[in-house]
Structures are given as structure tokens and as C-alpha cells.
């Protein structure tokens, strides 16, 4: 039995009409998902707005961790959902909608990173430059900590993100899908378009690469 997920979103349509407001409870699961997809395919704008509201946080979080840039991740999240909208008719349902969206996110991140490296370095908004508002959102849900602990936590997060960005794109993507998004190796295979065996061997190499990059941090914590 799948648990219902609570999604809060306020969607203001371009026409000024409020399409979806306040907190809404959506029953997750294959039947609810296929019903929503069917509505979207029929051109129901409110249904598509709900689909976006359900998945936007997950898309944004994965994008910002892969790209390491909040502005880029925000733009990319929009592009991802526009692509979802345009290609919804081609989604055959062989994987879950979430896995299919992950695949789009990873592909868009790969394309954008190539392009971005060449053209837009100067306009980046690195993840370590999170505004106080961002930081507040990051904090929400976590246990409140004192100023010293907050600084320490921020520094720890920065170093992990830095280590992550030091990895190759493939290693970064597979680690985030596995350790942060908690996808199974089978789903990761679907999302990355590679066999499950490749996922496992790539995951082992990516974990080892991350371990080496985080070794100084882990050693420091081990001594204290």
C-alpha cells in the first residue's frame, strides 16, 4: 500500500486564474499517476500543473546537485517540464513517470553542462552562494542548531558538494540517483539508459571516487 504524499503548491496561471492553491493531498500510485497522465494527454492544463507541482522539488534538487548552480537548475527545471509536456504522448509507461522524468533531467543536465561550460560561466550562481532564504528552506525540516553548528553544517555541505562537482558527470549523476534520490539499480538503468550490470559497476567506481575526494573530510572528523 503506497503512502499518500502531501504536495503544497500555488499555481497561478498566466491568465491570472488560480489553478491550484494551498496544500493538496495526492494519492501516489500507478492508478493515480495514469489517471493524471491521461488528463494531461487530453490537454487538461490544471492536471499538468499538478504533475509539475508534484515533481518540481525532486527535479530541482537533482538538477542543482548535478549542476551546482541554483539559477541554472531553476531554468533547467522549467525546460524539463516543457519537454515532459511536449513528449508526454510518447511516454509508454514502461517505467514509472518519475523515472522517465529523471531521465529527462539527466539528459538536459548533460546538454546544458556542455553548453554552459563554454558560454555562461560568468553568470553562474554557485550553490555555495545560497541566499538566507534558500538556507532557511534548507533548514526547514531539520533540527534547529546553534550558530556554530550551522556554520559547521554549511561547511560540511559545501565540501561534499565540491567533491561531487569534482567527479565526472556520469559518476555524479549515478551517485545522486542512488544515494540522494534512492532509486533502485534497475530504475537507475532506465533513467540513464544503461543495463543494470553497468549501473552496478559504475556505481562502485563512483563511490570509490567520492570516497577518495572526501577522504580528508572523513579523516578530519575521525580525529576529532
Amino acid at each position: 500500500m503506497s503512502k499518500p504524499s502531501r504536495v503544497g503548491a500555488e499555481v497561478v496561471m498566466a491568465s491570472g486564474e488560480v489553478a491550484l492553491r494551498s496544500t493538496e493531498t495526492l494519492a501516489a500510485g500507478p492508478s493515480a499517476e495514469s489517471g493524471l497522465l491521461e488528463q494531461c494527454r487530453r490537454g487538461d492544463a490544471q492536471a499538468f500543473a499538478r504533475l509539475v507541482a508534484i515533481h518540481e522539488a525532486m527535479v530541482y534538487n537533482l538538477a542543482v546537485r548535478i549542476l551546482g548552480d541554483t539559477e541554472e537548475a531553476r531554468d533547467l527545471a522549467q525546460d524539463v517540464f516543457l519537454q515532459v509536456y511536449r513528449t508526454l504522448g510518447r511516454f509508454e509507461g514502461r517505467s514509472t513517470l518519475k523515472t522517465w522524468i529523471y531521465r529527462i533531467v539527466v539528459n538536459q543536465c548533460r546538454n546544458r553542462q556542455r553548453w554552459w561550460r563554454r558560454r555562461r560561466r560568468d553568470r553562474s550562481c554557485p550553490i555555495e552562494d545560497l541566499s538566507p532564504a534558500d538556507e532557511a528552506r534548507v533548514q526547514s525540516g531539520a533540527e534547529p542548531d546553534g550558530p556554530y553548528e550551522a556554520v559547521e553544517r554549511r561547511e560540511r555541505t559545501r565540501r561534499v558538494q565540491e567533491a561531487l562537482l569534482g567527479l565526472s558527470f556520469d559518476h555524479r549523476a549515478i551517485l545522486l540517483l542512488r544515494e540522494v534520490e534512492c532509486l533502485s539499480c534497475e530504475d537507475i538503468g532506465e533513467a540513464l539508459g544503461v543495463p543494470e550490470g553497468t549501473v552496478k559497476s559504475r556505481l562502485a567506481r563512483a563511490r570509490e571516487a567520492l570516497r577518495q575526494r572526501l577522504a580528508p573530510l572523513l579523516d578530519g572528523e575521525g580525529r576529532t
Binding site: 503548491a9 500555488e10 499555481v11 497561478v12 496561471m13 498566466a14 489553478a19 491550484l20 492544463a45 499538468f48 500543473a49 509539475v52 507541482a53 518540481e56 522539488a57 527535479v59 530541482y60 534538487n61 542543482v64 546537485r65 541554483t70 537548475a73 531553476r74 527545471a77 522549467q78 517540464f81 516543457l82 509536456y85 550553490i127 545560497l130 541566499s131 532564504a133 534558500d134 528552506r137 534548507v138 533548514q139 531539520a142 555541505t157 561534499v160 558538494q161 540522494v180
Partner: peptide, 17 residues
């Protein structure tokens, strides 16, 4: 790693576009 959420709802921008 803390989960980050966008500062403004992506959905409004997507529907505008």
C-alpha cells in the same frame, strides 16, 4: 545533503511559458 527546493514555484513559470 539537505534537499533544496526552488525559491519560487516552477509550476507558475512553466504554465506561463
Amino acid at each position: 545533503l539537505p534537499r533544496l527546493t526552488p525559491s519560487e514555484a516552477v509550476v507558475a513559470r512553466v504554465m506561463d511559458r
